[in-house]
Amino acid sequence: MKVEIVGGLVAASLVVAAIAIGSGGLRHFDPALTHYAFASVIAAFAVAYRYGGWLGRPPTRRLLRRVLELALERGFARQGAHAAGLAAARLGAQSFIARRSRLRWVTHFCLSWGSMLAFAITFPLVFGWVHFETAPTEAETYRAVLFGIVLDDFSVHSWKAFAAFNALNLSAILVLVGVALALYRRLREAGDFAVQQLAVDILPLVLLFAVSATGLLLTISSRALGGGGYPFFAVTHAATVIALLLYLPFGKLFHAVQRPAHVGIGLYKRAAASGAAARCVRCGAAFASAMQVADLKHVLGALAIEPRFADGLHYQDVCPGCRRRLLALNQGRLVGR
């Protein structure tokens, strides 16, 4: 059986087990959320399947292996501390996007943190890990229970209750702001406008909008419309969430799962900078780290690409600048100029 399928089955089984155990043997599992749970299991299979395929690519496999080797050589604690710093900057603050464009950063920050907040609330609720109940002695006191352990008691009129009941609304508003800014940028920036594609760039925005808008409409229906349209909004919201979960492994949003590799490459680059440099066999200039050039030769070999000449010279030992000059020199000799 393919490794990707095994990975998918393991991930799906883990989610099923996490639901069964985390909900206290389904005691706290809400049957009304079964369709969300079912979609989550399928999404877990598909995400792990695709992730397995991605990790199996020679360059990705080589990078992962090298990062693990570096952690072993230099100590997990030291590498872990550096990785934590990189993760805070690249995954948390997403500062590299701010360097690309401030508007892009605000947009992505709203979309990503709005989505992550929503997932952080929705999955534990759907899986039955978290549930709320009324305190036995006080009807206006709510009790939050995580994995069967009482977390907190709070009044339904307290700020905690307000935060708990509106966290998903806040995440929806964040996502809607992000979607609006993304569409504004896509309409305004000619470069993006030229290369964007409906299925790749616009569909995820449509899905995020649909999920957030229908989620907010549930609140609006119960608070302002006296429950009017609630069943329709509930079904529409469920359909859009399931569509988003099933789209996650196949489209642009999969980058959220891949992005931690950016932390890995930070560790890799630091190790590369402190190691020996590769020098061009033609001009003698240092052009990259010897470690990366060695890794690339390995990756190219695994891909059955062999830029090795009869005299043993490997084209990876020629710097990019000399490769450009060699193209002109070879062409010039051919045309006699």
């Binding site: 360059p59 690339l296 710097c319 193209l327």
Partner: peptide
């Protein structure tokens, strides 16, 4: 990786 591997630089 792409910068270093492209045969045309």
């Amino acid at each position: 990786n792409c910068v270093l591997a492209c045969p045309f630089g």
